[in-house]
Design a protein around this nucleic acid. Structure first.
Lengths: 358, 358
DNA sequence: TTGTACGCGTTATCAC
DNA sequence: GTGATAACGCGTACAA
């Protein structure tokens, strides 16, 4: 890394530059470094890579030359030799980056100070763009691929004949026999939420879900129903479904209250729905959490931060998912990759909307 | 592109694969294609690149071979020859991707169906990580760099001695004499907002700003003050500053109303502040927009969508900024790059919080 | 300890 | 119309 980190020379002001000198100086190559140090190219290479059989004097001359020229090794040329580029692609369909970015960060953390970089491409839900990006990534010789879906429903496999390993994250591949997928346990997430509410002493729990065409919606609803049944409880009302918006949350909360049932908690399909529900309850004079507890899913900080009181939510552990994906991919790059679907647990992040019932 | 797009072979099921065949097949090279087509490597190259002096028969044989092998040309090897990789880096410090992603999309659109891909790296506000990413990008021979700040305040220049052109976007470089920066005209944005409110018949305009340590805050405040003065109006109250949060908006709205002044519009420092202000006004029984109009800045869809009524906001035209950056960079890659700071106008996106006064 | 020869995948040039 | 040769920047095996 010492050579790479020397990319910015220490001397930024080499005399008064002519006013119109805009053309950047050419890239220094190993040959330039070797020439400046007065050695052959392979010797310079050994010196920079801490290989044996190089005298200390030669090494320091080479290092100095590299520093002076701002030399940064061409990892692409190196990749030509060993067939690796130290680059993985992250192919996403998630417009706003709500899911992709935490996963990206987790992956970067896992690759860490190593030599691997992540190439992010957003297909914006467009199949043609996805294939275009895939071709571009393959042409750039990425060592592996992480595919992130915009929803948890299974997505089309990229196929079995790619020359590099692929890990599907968040949305599983529809070819689990050949592809490896790492996803959140949304059924478990629903159960976790119910258990949290039960621990807070709530018993009359209603569910206001999001868009019913999403697998995440039905998975969570199933987990909720199962956990309630396991506790010997009935849902406090028929589950309601709409979309992922705040306005839907507002409308649903009103409709739910209008039913006149006894309710002490509402489990919402997402943080956005939950914010709408909070608004709807406030309008109706319901106190949160004293009268009714409220919970969301996703733990999306942008939504949570503005919520009053601060919303309790279920975190999908996306960063951990990204880390796992990176580790799996890293292992697969010089080994082989398992297939199947691995589900990872979520976790409740308590806020102020679910304190113990009076 | 025809060869690259052939990366996914048309025949995904080459007989029953053994259950444990996970190791991906090796990458096909031009040599493999040439051998299969029964021609030399240079001839295969010409055939795939639509060069002249290749017989139709030969060309079709080569194309068929490439298709069959799922051949995808190694653009990195090609880059070794012409010194181009068809890759630009996008270095950001913007955690949540609120500014970076629109800019990224604009840049991708501008590079369009061309051969240029964008490499996104998030430094997460960490200087060390930024230098690490910069070194990684340089080592990967990116042809140019787009640097996106997380706030509009000038940011440290990457230096004058990089071997590739750099365009700073959203936050300008602190070395305008040598670097090119493309930013939003925040002063103009403040003026635009005032003009919109004036057009709606509002005259008693107050300003609830965001974090006063941000240049965006003071720039917008200045634009607001100047536009009011130009219209011969006084601010309806002393400007208030806090942070970028919804809770601040709520508190500020309450405090403002408590002053008992006559007010018919509130200009908020951001959409988040505006959402808080809307909440605060609703609590106090103020009707929006009938009693008081409300406007935000940023036009952040996530915030706008959940706002009731739908918030009027000033869009920063980030996608356009990204497109411009890509075009400038593209031109600079085989030319020279201008320096200085270019400011681009913003635009008002009317919602339902600023209808004409009664 | 250092330098020479070669190869990675691709394309341009120039023979044939 | 086709193929041999050289070159891009780098690392490794081997010779000096």
């Amino acid at each position: 890394m010492s050579a790479a980190d020397a990319a910015l020379p220490a001397d930024p002001a080499p005399g008064a530059a002519p006013a119109e000198r805009r053309a950047p100086r050419p890239r220094a190559t190993l040959r330039d470094v070797a020439a400046l140090a007065g050695v052959s190219v392979p010797t310079a290479s050994k010196a920079l890579n801490n290989r044996v059989h190089v005298s200390a004097a030669t090494r320091s001359r080479v290092l100095a030359a590299a520093e002076q020229l701002g030399f940064s090794p061409n990892v692409l040329a190196r990749g030509l030799l060993d067939g690796r580029t130290g680059t993985v692609g992250l192919l996403t369909s998630d417009l706003v980056g709500r899911f992709s970015l935490p996963i990206l960060m987790g992956a970067e953390d896992a690759f860490g100070a190593g030599r691997t970089s992540v190439f992010l491409c957003d297909a914006r839900g467009d199949t043609i763009r996805e294939r275009h990006h895939l071709a571009a990534l393959l042409a750039r010789q990425v060592d592996g691929l992480i595919v992130v879906g915009s929803r948890t429903d299974p997505r089309p496999s990229l196929g079995r004949d790619l020359p590099i390993p692929v890990v599907y994250v968040y949305a599983e591949s529809d070819d689990p026999a050949h592809d490896l997928s790492l996803v959140c346990d949304n059924v478990g997430a629903g159960a976790l939420a119910v258990e949290h509410l039960l621990a807070m002493g709530r018993r009359r729990i209603a569910h206001i879900g999001g868009d019913p065409t999403y697998l995440a919606t039905t998975d969570r609803a199933r987990g909720i129903a199962e956990a309630l049944a396991a506790a010997g409880l009935e849902p406090a009302a028929e589950p309601m479904y709409g979309d992922w918006s705040e306005p839907w949350g507002v409308a649903a909360a009103r409709a739910l209250l209008a039913q006149g049932r006894e309710i002490d908690a509402i489990l919402c399909g997402s943080d956005q729905v939950a914010r709408g529900v909070l608004d709807g309850l406030r309008e109706s004079g319901c106190a949160v959490p004293d009268d009714i507890a409220v919970m969301g899913f996703d733990n999306w900080e942008v939504m949570i931060a503005g919520s009053r009181p601060r919303l309790t939510s279920v975190d999908m552990n996306l960063e951990a998912l990204g880390r796992m994906a990176a580790e799996r991919l890293f292992a697969a790059i010089d080994g082989s990759l398992a297939s199947g679907v691995e589900r990872f647990p979520c976790r409740v992040v308590p806020g102020q909307t679910t304190s113990p019932a009076a």
